[in-house]
Design a protein around this nucleic acid. Structure first.
Lengths: 235, 235
DNA sequence: CGTAGAGTTGACGGGAATCAAAAGTAGTGG
DNA sequence: CCACTACTTTTGATTCCCGTCAACTCTACG
């Protein structure tokens, strides 16, 4: 099923999304209070296949996105190609905010994705007239900022174990049991997110398994055996 | 002169700012176009002496600040005391934005500072009525976000030399000659900002001097001798 | 079964941290 | 003016965490 989507995407043209239709879907219940319903009446539903570009660095920032399903990563690069993943975005998350008129980060589909694309000028116009929406956009941008700041602390001052433990905690569900859904991202993605190498990520996960903190059922399916001890590691 | 201010501050009470008066000053010419003049008619002028707290982590986020003079740092800490400096703010910069109702970072005066404090609720009320101001606040928050994202890339993927070169470039004036005003921050501040140790910062600066990139006139007064080569280092 | 990509593991080396001490700088008091 | 103290900065010696290089395993897929 997801495969047919991939093919559909690749047929259309290299890595171009398939526009499925004008969005008429309402926000899902859990976001009902969070997003002005007027946003639910605008926007286009798009599909992106795994690893395809949603937008590139330097592209015109005329669109905002909200994820319906799938995972998205935003990346930046140094001149010699070193990559850094700024953030992963999950179902319900909004991304694509920019100060100026171009994207400073690129965005890519980690898994097959369905997103709703809103025209930036439309959103800005609506926000100018509607205070509730304006505040929602503002606090959404602020949450992105808060995340970036937290992540700076991690990158600057945490050890490899602390980084990996933090990552696992971020992606486990928030309940005390910390059940984990299957990871969408590769070891390379995790490494580029945490400022490590794949080898170090892999070694650290193995170490955590040996210490009975986690269980590596498969590479992408991790179970947290000792949530308390894991949380104690994040510093 | 600044010394009398320090004393004044310490007299008032431990590290408490001195309220000099209700702000009636207009924004300086260079910010005239950037900040709605209605903000110029509100806010209180405060002084903070070097190394005093402006607000602490967890404090109620009911105030926004704009710097009139001096340098401010925002910090976060790990449980064992490891410090990270999220950002330095210079004359004209605005800081204190938060998603929720508490400050997630603490703010401290790097040098003796004069700031204008705006009540958050006042600014929010004004922004709700005035679209220009609302957009200015939004883009200010977005610039903070962009800075944090840039900084993540630096922390995650740059070497010590690249980090220091980036820092110097950030703080040199933007003209090609890259004249540097005296640094307000200590080596410890620089280290905590770049995710390094003081020793590494010091060694790297010495190395850059040996390579004729910079001149360490005194520890706090650095002259950039070869702006082109220095820029080439930032990756 | 065979190939390709993802992930793991091991051996080794290097860059930055740590530990330690000297040198430079500023403030204070005689 | 200069000694005395406290602090910041620099420099050196050593350690160690993580990166690099390389080989091997595992899984997916045709």
């Amino acid at each position: 099923m997801s495969r047919s989507l991939v093919l559909a995407c690749n047929c259309a043209s290299e890595n171009e999304p398939v526009v499925v239709g004008h969005a008429v879907i309402r926000p899902k219940p859990e976001y009902h209070g969070n997003w002005e319903s007027l946003l639910a009446t605008t926007g286009s539903v798009l599909h992106f296949s795994q690893d395809s570009d949603i937008y590139g660095e330097g592209a015109e920032a005329d669109t905002l996105y909200r994820i319906v399903s799938g995972i998205v990563r935003t990346c930046s690069f140094l001149s010699d190609g070193r990559r850094h993943i700024d953030s992963f975005y999950d179902e319900g998350d909004m991304f694509g905010f920019e100060v100026g008129h171009v994207h400073r980060l690129s965005a890519e589909a980690v898994s097959d994705c369905t997103v709703i694309a809103y025209r930036r000028c439309t959103v800005e116009r609506l926000a100018a007239e509607n205070n509730v929406l304006a505040r929602q956009m503002f606090s959404c941008a602020m949450r992105n900022m808060a995340h970036a700041q937290n992540h700076c602390l991690l990158l600057a001052r945490k050890s490899a174990v602390e980084k990996v433990a933090t990552f696992l905690t971020e992606w486990a569900d928030p309940s005390p049991r910390m059940e984990m859904k299957a990871l969408a991202m590769t070891r390379q993605d995790i490494a580029d997110y945490l400022g490590l190498t794949i080898e170090t990520v892999s070694r650290t996960l193995s170490q955590l398994e040996r210490d009975a903190m986690i269980e590596l059922h498969t590479a992408r399916h991790i179970r947290i055996r000792n949530p308390v001890a894991l949380r104690a590691l994040i510093a």
